[in-house]
Design a protein around this nucleic acid. Sequence first.
DNA 1: ATTGGCACTCTAAAATAAAGAGTGCTAAAT
DNA 2: ATTTAGCACTCTTTATTTTAGAGTGCCAAT
Lengths: 345, 345
Amino acid sequence: MPNLTERQKTLLMLIIRDYIDTAQPIGSKRLAEHYHINLSSATIRNEMAALTEMGYLRQPHTSAGRVPTEEGYRYFVSEMMHSAELPETVQRTISHQFFQSRPELDQWMTLAASILASQSQGVSVVAAPHVESTKFKHVELISTQGRQVLMVLVMLGGEVSQQILTLAEPVAQERLSGTAARLNGLLAGQTAQAMSTLTARPDPLDQDILLLIANDMRRLTEKASGEIYTDGLTNILGEPEFSEVDGPRRALKIFEEPATLQDLLAKTTSNSNVGALQVLIGGEGEYDDLRQCSLVIARYGVPGMATGALGVLGPMRMAYSRTIPTVRFVAGLLSELVSDNISGE
Amino acid sequence: MPNLTERQKTLLMLIIRDYIDTAQPIGSKRLAEHYHINLSSATIRNEMAALTEMGYLRQPHTSAGRVPTEEGYRYFVSEMMHSAELPETVQRTISHQFFQSRPELDQWMTLAASILASQSQGVSVVAAPHVESTKFKHVELISTQGRQVLMVLVMLGGEVSQQILTLAEPVAQERLSGTAARLNGLLAGQTAQAMSTLTARPDPLDQDILLLIANDMRRLTEKASGEIYTDGLTNILGEPEFSEVDGPRRALKIFEEPATLQDLLAKTTSNSNVGALQVLIGGEGEYDDLRQCSLVIARYGVPGMATGALGVLGPMRMAYSRTIPTVRFVAGLLSELVSDNISGE
DNA sequence: ATTGGCACTCTAAAATAAAGAGTGCTAAAT
DNA sequence: ATTTAGCACTCTTTATTTTAGAGTGCCAAT
């Protein structure tokens, strides 16, 4: 990858910034007039030719202005990635919103999605934190009617799962309570794996429930991430690159299949650390449906304990300088919240 | 509203059905050729003129075919509303899917949304059933760390609400269990209203929790409907009437604000009975964002106990003959499920 | 009451023309 | 050795005109 002169760098940044704003190919003349660089359009043309040669810019057709290539965007992002900070006032506003929301995961996720979407004008995706190795804390069995029983399972760290069981025959609440009490004593702190090595319980009901618990915990562990929260779907519908018939459908299709989305978040962030932030531009060859899009994602939470992922999807032309710091900041905030919530166990 | 002759009726139905298929204005010639009615195009023209006069059809411009008006659609719908039945094989397939899903509200709602969307090719909305007068069944208090406590609240009928409380000071699990046990005895079967008339508890912790429970139950009761599930967002993006720049954004905006959606469902179905089915065409003058859309909704559940709403949103040109029976059928199915689930309390 | 025929209207599509923006290159200027 | 002005050229966009065709309404004939 060839080095850029200082001037080429300035020009490239200017072009990309302008293109992100206007969605119009940028010409040499416009550039010379709008920004007071002391260069003539001819000089700029030369530099543009060089940048095109190097693969950072391209022309939609022979005689149009220049448009950034994926490489161009990557350069742009890597240049401003570290320096960009969210204005303090915005930081404060966001923190404040979290502070005064009800202290529930559900609320936080929704809020995070909403903030990300409105700040970035893209589509936000927030995956609830997932406890890496789910450990049993507490089970509650509540008879609801005849053979149906509500089982509430609480994990160390606060994850909760409820499930309705249908037993073979009606069982009295007292017996259920007894089973729950015995299992609570037996299973405290165990993982699903450890449970499968236990010897069978004498009481058949205990044994049945034990299996169901282990099963449910396995399911919880397998799920790569928690539930997905989304906001801002309509934000990107207005963008010109999505007005072609197929653009939006392909990208939005992703949001209709939570599984795909979870996969994406899990895969692309699994090798990155909490706090680090990843920018996927143009699907990076891997995701065909995202060829026209960019994705800014970060992992949040407490590594080894509970982590989740969050991000913003937008056109390749997205407002990186706004999105990147926002994603970073919100990820940090959620990390704190998760950490506070988990530490005391 | 003038009466239609039998022939006019046939013609109107034919035109609307064809237009729903093709999204093209329907001309007299096409009609005469495609369907073997023994009428010449001239005769059809006369009838069309009459139908236009009566307000059931209109012409996009002087010399184009006819397109149904909102009145036209209303007539169409009212004619086929009662007769239409879902093919038995489809009914079976759908029942089967519900039958083999895990018996959880969450699963059912998602499944209902998915089925409605795929059958109707529109956007589906399903509001979880809401228990009309929430009655207490059981509370569970689980210490998670220092001052934080997980409260799981179970209502008669199976509604569950979890909440993280932050107490003024750390409290041992034993004391929490004691409080929970006392409150379980005291509050069984009570409504939020009844709770507010109780005299203060001697133990301050009991009293605090009692207030929180009452509060949470009030919140649950106030919520007009339960959580909203949606599917098929991308279905309507392809429809020609949404390719104008502003069409989709305005309609989809609704789905970004759960509150609005809940309102809509609540209002439009509040005066209709479970089992009855309502078709809103062109927003009916009330909902501006839906001017281009139609909405087929139904209430489901057990009146007086727990009811929810579900529906399909699509272009005015939606496949009513498919959507209406599907909505009716799924509503019936969910009613059964809710009823089974609630009866034994 | 129904139908064939016909003149008329209006749109959608195709063809053509004009305008404009931007480029690359060359030769002069700094 | 850069930088710049100038110019010919290319290609898109927009406007304009033409053409083709679908559909109508109405009248006279069946």
